[in-house]
Amino acid sequence: MLDGFLALYIFMLAAFTGYEIIARVPVILHTPLMSGSNFIHGIVLVGAMIALGHAHTSFELAIGFIGVLLGAGNAAGGYVVTERMLEMFKTSKPAPDSKEAK
């Protein structure tokens, strides 16, 4: 299992990874990236499922159910919205000047 320092290393390396990925990103992708990172923290769904999977009292069941519902919404919504945005990005370069050549 994760002891204190091992977890701390993971926290640190993950934080640097996130920082480095975003640091070199062009402004045009900020909105899709915010949406994409919003999707990625949808992994919270997994935690909510574990919480509901270990719930016993009705109080715990209710909290867990709401958690899974919200987490699923985060993951699915984040995916759909990001995918729709990124779908639209295209360049005029690969098909050189198809419109401009007229």
Binding site: F11, Y19, V44
Partner: peptide
């Protein structure tokens, strides 16, 4: 932990 932290930093 990893996904959350990456998003937290980014």
């Amino acid at each position: 932990i990893i996904a959350g932290m990456v998003v937290g930093a980014a």
